[in-house]
Amino acid sequence: MKTKSAARNIFYGGSLFFLVIFVALTVDSHLYALNVSTDQAGLTEAVVRGKRVWEKNACIDCHTILGEGAYYAPELGNVWIRRGDPDDPEVAREFIRDWMKSQPSGVEGRRQMPQFNLTDQEINDLTEFLRWVSTIKTQNWPPNDAG
């Protein structure tokens, strides 16, 4: 590289080139998310409301979901599978409801989850959200049910 202006032009041209590729791949991935990896038909209002419950209580600042979040509490992207029964959706549903109602455990030396005082509607919505998330096609991540 001989001069400053050559370096500058490579910076501008190259960055623009890679930005265009990145945006094009984003469009492709956006369509893939809509058409392939997520259950668009199952994305009901309850699921969206459940996502708001998830956000309103900052769940992600202890848990992870699809591996992203804090690392203080278990992965929840597959909690529906880990705590459920493929033949009986009531098992996971009941587990989540009981779990939310029984926190905090108060056990000494054990990480504590707060009591969020969710309404029955909110618990149902949150459960729907977690069920929907478990159906996302994630290239087979996590490696096992432990999440």
Partner: peptide, 9 residues
């Protein structure tokens, strides 16, 4: 990689 996006990533 693992958030529901295509495998080419």
């Amino acid at each position: 990689y693992w958030i529901g996006t295509p495998g080419y990533w």
